[in-house]
Every structure is written in C-alpha cells, then in structure tokens.
C-alpha cells in the first residue's frame, strides 16, 4: 500500500505542456505504483529472510529440505503474467490515446497537398488531438524540421519562415515533418513527453498539441558528434495572438498575414 501511495503522490516529472503529457503521466503513475509495490515487496522479503533465517552462532544444522512447491510456483508465474498483460494492454491504450496508432499524415490534407504527403513516411506519432479532447476542427500547423550537426531548423511552409526557434500557438495541433541532413538526431521536448528520431533519408512525423504557454528546451537526444550535448533549441508556446504577431513579423509571404 505504501508503494501505491508513493506511486500516486511522488512526482518525478517535469511540467505537462502538451495534450499527451497528462496521458503519459497517468501511465507513469500506474507503472511507478506497480514497480514500487513489487520492489518494496521483494526488498522486504529479502531483508526479512536474511534477518529471520540467518545462522545463529553455534548452529550447525541445515535448513529445511524444501525442493519446490508447484502451486506456489504456478502462483508466481501467473501473477506477473497477469500484471504484465495488464500493463501491456493499458500501455497500448495510452499509446493509442497519444496518437501512436493513428495513420501518419503530415499536415492537413485540405491545405496541404504537396509532395510531402506523397513521399513515404517512416514513423512517428500521429495526431492525438481527437483522442485527448482537443478540438480537431482546427487545421493543424505544418512545420518542416531539418536537423543537422548541430542545430535544428524549423521551416513554416505557410509563411515561408525559417527559424532556429520553434514557435507554436497554444491549443493548435502541430504536425512536424522531420528529416536530417547528415547523421541521426532526435527531437525531444521533455515537457511534451515526446521524442522522435530525425533520420537522414527517411522522413519522420511528429504531431502534438501544446497546451501550456512557456519556453521549453528542445533537446537532441541521439549521439550525433562532439557537440551533441550542445545541440539544443527552444520551443516557445505562446497564446495565439502573440504567435500571430511573431508570425506576421517573420512571414515572407505578405498575403498570409492577417
């Protein structure tokens, strides 16, 4: 029970800043609870046995000649099996709610029909907005991400903006198509609980919906050379008006300014 309490009440994670972060944290709490219960249980058993059954001075006899106990063994085969099955099904559900099982498509089909949607997409996370209660009626914001040693470049096809910093409006789904110029990198925002490798020659997709304004680190999580540790950027989640201001200031295509 102590384990359950720890699992539910100790928070080890950074702030939740995307639609799937609360979903992730739900899974985390469940796993953490199960893990803590198991760990404390086994730790307790081992310590108890070591104290209770230790050899006292002068004792020379053997322990009991217990070679096994089939029902007991079946029991502790079955219990982990059930636990594991539960964890598996539950994490499938979580994964689905995060958009992992949604067919991958970049951007919104109506606004976006260029070559990017035709080329083969290799994997990533689909759009979770419908499943997490966020409005899916808003067209998602397409962004093209290029990673190189040792920087990320964000290209907004809508305003033809190229930026080293990722700006996204809060509440609007974002759809990123990522590709690398040289070696494998990875796009990671801990506050979004999302990570996706950026691979040369094989574009990947990452969709998410930011929910909390703020500045969060974008971290490269795949060893990519000497400056891998320095390969960072920032994602600025701002409210739609501020985002629009930023967009207007930088957009090259005048007609898109509103």
């Amino acid at each position: 029970m102590g384990g359950l309490w720890i699992g539910q009440n100790v928070n080890l994670l950074p702030i939740e800043a995307s639609a799937n972060a609360p979903v992730y944290d739900e899974l985390f709490r469940v796993l953490f609870s199960i893990g803590t219960i198991l760990f404390i249980g086994i730790l307790g058993l081992v310590i108890y046995s070591l104290i209770r059954f230790r050899r006292k001075p002068g004792q020379l006899s053997d322990g009991i000649a217990l070679e096994g106990n089939l029902p007991l063994e079946i029991f502790w085969t079955a219990v982990p099996a059930v636990v594991v099955l539960f964890i598996g099904i539950y994490s499938y559900d979580i994964y689905d709610r995060m958009g992992g099982m949604t067919p991958l498509a970049h951007g919104d089909m109506h606004t976006h029909n260029s070559a990017t949607t035709e080329s083969k997409i290799w994997g990533g996370i689909g759009n979770a907005s419908e499943k997490t209660g966020y409005e899916s009626s808003i067209a998602s914001l397409p962004i093209e991400v290029t990673a190189m040693q040792f920087a990320f470049l964000f290209h907004y096809p809508e305003g033809d903006i190229i930026s080293g910093e990722l700006h996204v409006p809060v509440g609007r789904p974002v759809s990123m198509r990522m590709e690398s110029n040289d070696v494998i990198h990875a796009f990671w925002v801990p506050e979004f609980r999302l990570k996706q490798d950026v691979i040369p020659g094989q574009p990947t997709i990452l969709n998410f919906t930011p929910t909390k304004p703020g500045r969060y680190p974008v971290i490269c999580a795949e060893l990519c050379g000497p400056y891998h540790g320095g390969m960072r950027s920032t994602v600025v989640v701002e409210d739609p008006n501020e985002y629009q201001t930023w967009f207007n200031k930088n957009a090259k295509d005048e007609t898109l300014k509103t």
């Binding site: 979903v23 992730y24 899974l27 985390f28 796993l31 964890i87 598996g88 994490s91 979580i94 994964y95 995060m98 992992g100 996370i125 990875a186 990671w188 801990p190 609980r193 999302l194 990570k195 996706q196 999580a221 795949e222």
Partner: peptide
C-alpha cells in the same frame, strides 16, 4: 512500454 519509452529513450 512504447509510450513510456518515447519520453525516456536515450536519457
């Protein structure tokens, strides 16, 4: 668990 690993992979 895939969804868990997506956050902590390579950390």
């Amino acid at each position: 668990q895939v969804p868990f690993d997506i956050h902590v992979h390579d950390t």
